[in-house]
Amino acid sequence: MKNALENRIEALQDRIIAQRNMERADEIPGWGMDADPENDPTYPMKHSNGADHQRLNYEKAPQQPLDMEILHSIERPGVTRVFGTSTPPSGLSGAIRRYAYKYSEATATHWMSLILADRVNAVEGKLDDLRRGVLPNPWVERGWRAEWKHNRSGFIQNVATTALLLTAGIMLMKRKNRRKQLLSKR
């Protein structure tokens, strides 16, 4: 039932309907009488020349060959004539991305799934580094070197706070475990 309108989409094509309405404009009382080409809040960013209304047949560049997996928004019929080829989807994050692209850009499912995929991808990246024998180097890659050079006291303060919180967390866990062990012995 929900698809009833989508199933009729061929009959609802925008430019065809607009053309039909304009051909019978004399049957629509007042059609166009207050139209003012100067009433254009997009000026001067957009140089309106009617191209919007001729959009069915614009000149397109040749299609870039699709030699890798490219996900595309379901709000367009296919990929664009050119596209980026950086980092095609892969692994678990890729599966999440494929799921995300089943939903339109108007849905939280689309964007939240992509954010989740990004976080999973960050873990995959670290595992991939280790697999290739690349050890993480936060000193350089997280810019701690620059922080040490330009904000030493702040950096030391952050490290000390993190260390303190970690130690407190570990001690709390240990105490909980010890209490559990004591209770289980009783």
Binding site: M45, K46, H47, S48, N49, A51, D52, Q54, R55, Y58, E59, K60, A61, I70, L71, H72, S73, E75, R76, G78, V79, T80, R81, V82, F83, G84, Y101, E105
Partner: peptide
């Protein structure tokens, strides 16, 4: 792309033929 309706009207930041992943965003 220089030839889609948006580029034709100088909205080069909103090209219709350069970003397959998001229709809300140009390439």
């Amino acid at each position: 792309c220089g030839s889609c309706p948006h580029c034709k009207q100088e909205l080069y930041g909103n090209c219709h033929e350069s970003n397959p992943e998001a229709t809300a965003v140009g390439g």
